[in-house]
Nucleic acid binder design. Structure first.
Lengths: 109, 109
DNA sequence: CCGTATCCCGGGAGATACTG
DNA sequence: CAGTATCTCCCGGGATACGG
C-alpha cells in the first residue's frame, strides 16, 4: 500500500508493516485463493472475478519479489505456470483466517 | 477499500468483507491506536504522524457509521471529543494482533 | 495459455487556510 | 481543540488489444 513509516523512536510498527504487504486491493484475495493449493494464472483470473490480467500480473510479481509466493514455469505448449505460497506466504494464512472469522461474525449478525 | 463482491454462488467472502472494512490507508492504524484506550482527535493526529485533519476526520466518521468506534463529545470550551472502540471494534484487535505478530517475524528475519 | 503494452480515469489522500 | 472547506495531484487499477 505504501512504504512503512518509522515511529518517532525510529522503530517500525509491525502492524503497519503487514498492512503495507497485504494492503493492495487484490493482494489478500490472491493469497486466500492460493491458501487452498497451487493455482495457474487463468484459475486465479477466474476465481478473482473482475481482476484485469494486468493487475493480476503486477500483484503476482510483487508477491514473488517479496518472497510470499513462488512461480513455477513449465516449458510446454501451451505454457503452464503455477503459483503457490512460500513458507512466508503460508504464515499469512493465519492473518487471513483471523479476518475470515471477523468477517463471518460481521455478516451473520 | 471497496464494496464487497459476491462469489458466483451469491455468498459474500468474509475475508473480502473484513478487507473492505479495514482496507483504507489509515483505518487499521487508527484502530491500533484506539486499542490502547480512548483518544482525542489531536492525540490521534500526533500518533498517526503524517495524516491530514481532513483524512482523519473522514476515517473517523466512516468508522463511527460502521459501528466500530464511538464518539463522545463534551460541551466544554475548548471542545473535547473522545474516540474509543465499540465491541465491534474490540473484535478487530484480534486481527491487528495477528498482523502484528506476522510483521514482527518479517522485521526480525 | 500467459501474460505485456497502452491508454485512460476516478477517487483517495495531501497541503493549506479557515471557523465555531 | 476539533474539525470543515477547497484545491490539487497522483497512481492504482480498469478496459482493451496484442504478442510469444
Amino acid at each position: 500500500m505504501e512504504l512503512t513509516k518509522s515511529h518517532s523512536d525510529g522503530t517500525v510498527c509491525p502492524v503497519a508493516c503487514t498492512a503495507s504487504i497485504i494492503g493492495g486491493k487484490w493482494t489478500l484475495l490472491i493469497i486466500r485463493d492460493l491458501a487452498s493449493g497451487l493455482k495457474r494464472f487463468h484459475q486465479l483470473e477466474r476465481s478473482l472475478s473482475g481482476i484485469s490480467p494486468k493487475t493480476l500480473s503486477e500483484r503476482l510479481r510483487s508477491l514473488e519479489e517479496e518472497g510470499i509466493i513462488s512461480r513455477k514455469m513449465y516449458a510446454e505448449v501451451p505454457p503452464r505456470v503455477e503459483y503457490s505460497l512460500t513458507e512466508k506466504g503460508q504464515d499469512l494464512v493465519a492473518v487471513i483466517e483471523c479476518m475470515r472469522s471477523y468477517g463471518k461474525r460481521w455478516l451473520c449478525k
